[in-house]
């Protein structure tokens, strides 16, 4: 049996880690006698932001991490961040092959799969959101908890007052009013207990989670064809099943939050389209700038957008 060591970027109790551990169990079952994944731990074993380097250097063979944690090495990860497609669609149209090609060229790691896709981000606020005459969000008076992933959107487009706080300090920040709004994925707010302070969810949602499995390329190439096939097949199946599981979970959490008094504020028509355009354009501009500074293939930018963004779905 060949064994791959693995780490995950988030604590074991987090829903995304649970999803990865399900994938590991499925591989170990399907790969009995051929391939085994040996999970060595989460951020307590290797720091979240050091895991991609650990895979690159061969200290571990595999990591389950957001692309945003290695944004410095691979600016193209913003194609996944801004995506409005699911992993299954991107697998179908060749998007995942393309992002794998870029991972192999830039970092010497194989991109095995994009899990937990189809989960997007909302803006969550404590106070009633105010809309201007055109129905756009007015962000004055909002103290928004920031994060490098979405700051380009928050500051450049929304013009909000962004306050950087580590995730661990957000609870205290909301409690004392240091911040009164935050971006966060559709699921997980209840686990963090931020719902004790948050009263409004703003729709539409934007962006996407960008969690994926990367494998050291030398190690990947040294595996038997049989082992690679098992890993690939289980990964493709998990791309589909994890997206479905999260859709159900999201519906359940939204229901629970709304039952407890969470109000949904929906931007309408042109305002909604502007909002989504602001989110993706600010981030694409950042990606284009960084890609030009670290040249690889000139036409990658357009190909990435084409594979990971569906303009028809966004309504322009």
């Amino acid at each position: 049996t060949e064994t791959l060591t693995a780490v995950h970027a988030f604590p074991s109790t987090l829903v995304y880690t649970q999803s990865f551990l399900e994938f590991v169990d499925a591989v170990n079952e399907a790969g009995d006698g051929v391939i085994r994944i040996d999970v060595r731990g989460g951020p307590e074993a290797i720091g979240s932001f050091q895991q991609a380097d650990a895979v690159r250097d061969g200290v571990v063979d595999m990591a389950y991490t957001p692309g945003s944690f290695y944004a410095g090495a691979l600016p193209e990860k913003d194609a996944l961040v801004t995506s409005n497609r699911t992993a299954a669609e991107a697998r179908e149209n060749g998007g995942i092959d393309l992002i794998n090609e870029i991972h192999e060229a830039r970092m010497g790691v194989h991109y095995l799969g994009w899990f937990d896709s189809g989960v997007c981000y909302n803006l969550w606020t404590v106070n009633t959101p105010r809309l201007d005459d055109a129905g756009n969000l007015a962000m004055t008076d909002v103290r928004l908890r920031g994060n490098p992933v979405y700051n380009a959107f928050f500051t450049d487009y929304l013009g909000a007052q962004v306050i950087d706080l580590p995730t661990g300090e957000v609870f205290a920040g909301l409690e004392r009013g240091v911040v009164n709004a935050t971006g966060w994925t559709q699921i997980g707010l209840i686990d963090l207990r931020w719902n004790e302070f948050i009263n409004y969810r703003i729709e539409p949602c934007f962006f996407s989670t960008d969690l994926g499995v990367i494998v050291n390329l030398e190690r990947w190439n040294a595996l038997s064809e049989e082992a690679r096939a098992i890993l690939r097949d289980v990964a493709i199946a998990h791309e589909i099943s994890s997206a479905e599981a999260h859709r159900d979970r999201r519906d359940a959490e939204f229901e629970q939050l709304e039952a407890a008094g969470m109000t949904v504020v929906e931007l309408e028509g042109e305002a909604a389209a502007e909002y989504l355009r602001g989110a993706r354009e600010a981030t694409w501009n950042r990606m284009r700038g960084l890609m030009e500074a670290q040249p690889l293939e000139a036409d990658h930018f357009d190909r990435l957008i084409e594979h990971f963004y569906d303009f028809d779905r966004a309504g322009g």
């Binding site: 380097d53 945003s68 944004a71 410095g72 090495a73 490098p148 700051n151 950087d164 960084l290 670290q294």
Partner: peptide
């Protein structure tokens, strides 16, 4: 050699 960056609010050469 890898042009590594530390990514927080800025891209800071590692």
């Amino acid at each position: 050699a890898r042009m590594d960056f530390d990514v927080r609010a800025y891209f800071y050469p590692r």
